[in-house]
Design a protein around this nucleic acid. Structure first.
Lengths: 204, 204
DNA sequence: CTTCGACATGTCAGTGTTGGAATGTCGCCG
DNA sequence: CGGCGACATTCCAACACTGACATGTCGAAG
């Protein structure tokens, strides 16, 4: 139900049309809460029916400029202060990690390093935004900056983790190999003692 | 479309019934890709129709034990190696940050510190799992450990960021206050010069 | 004056996700 | 042997999201 609150939040800063809202979504909320046209226009109608926003002005081309109502602002405040955010987020990229075992270590490493690069690119993008924006002490600016900082830190953590993980795959493989070598050695010892050697498939 | 691949991934490790899969989802994938019963059973039927899994054995109580087919394994490998993970994830908690400006700095700070505590609790939980698990060098264990490490690092980053952000709110408020004080001072100077003082609302 | 791009809204089918209800079976403990 | 808890599946209504299609208006540049 957060699309509703994203729309309310944007309208709390200034009145806007559905078209304006789409631009705002694509400009500042894409990486946090993406939305499509159909969703935004649909939600605006629902919000109007619910009395949380109202058509404050009409313009050319059928433009309807929406403004948040008192009830809408109350709802927004309620959501911010009293509704606990859901902690769990679906994480496509991390889900794959659980199943990397069906690939070869080399393929798994490639996957992780690709993730590292994607994170690095994301970090670079955030940095560009940070540097090309003039931050002042207005509250809206402060919170925008705080959100951006989250992006910067998250992408940095992601990259470091993915590089660490790639190394981990390599060293785990090495540990397994040496373990196998030891097992082989013991098997040879046993063989020397006259026992028949147990079957051991060669690891590729 | 990742629920499908989560199911395939779990079945790639060992055959299981829908009921078994639900336990696996709740045990290891909750924080990465949560799923409900209806989803899992529904997906199993779709996967069977698509020939990616098959009913390998039937048991008591109508139990159907599913196994991944050759086609299913191919599809899983394809997803892992060739389908780019979607980078953008919806982020409820971060969305709110954009709109904290409509709250008082104190309320905003409370929100951020609550988030910090939630992150700290999550970190603690992951730590418990890490310490209470016996990790070996089997591949499945290695990748489980890698995913867990991501959780550990992410929650640590979250907590640090939220605490930093809470401080940032405080200092931004202070900067604004001193700015206002300076403006006031200048206004008084102007007043002494005989000019009328401009209106200035008191900040609560 | 015409044409083109930006402005502007609306609708739809298909898919994914949630949460709950309904139904029944088996095995073990007392 | 009676009942309870774990096992096990199926169905459904409601809501959220995706991506595309349809329709039309205005303003400015050529």
């Amino acid at each position: 139900m957060s699309l509703r609150h994203a729309v309310l939040g944007l309208l709390s800063e200034s009145p806007a049309s559905g078209y304006d809202l789409m631009k705002l979504f694509n400009a500042s909320l894409t990486s946090v809460w993406p939305a499509t046209q159909s969703q935004v226009y649909g939600e605006l109608n629902k919000l109007t029916t619910a009395g949380l926003v109202e058509v404050a002005a009409q313009g050319p081309r059928g433009r309807k400029e929406y403004a948040i109502t008192h009830d809408g602002l109350t709802e927004l405040r309620h959501w911010l202060t009293e509704v606990a955010p859901i902690g769990q987020q679906r994480h496509d990229a991390l889900l794959r990690v659980f199943f990397l075992g069906i690939l070869t270590p080399l393929e798994a490493r490639t996957y992780l390093l690709t993730q590292a690069e994607a994170a690095a690119r994301a970090h670079e993008t955030y940095k560009q935004v940070d540097e090309s924006t003039e931050w002042d002490d207005e509250m809206i600016s402060v919170y925008g900056q705080i959100a951006l900082e989250y992006g910067l830190r998250l992408s940095a953590t992601m990259e470091e983790w993915a590089r660490w993980a790639a190394d981990e795959v390599t060293s785990a493989k090495a540990r397994k190999a040496s373990e196998l070598a030891r097992a082989r050695h013991e098997a040879e010892q046993t063989e020397l003692d006259g026992e028949p050697a147990p079957e051991r498939p060669d690891d590729a």
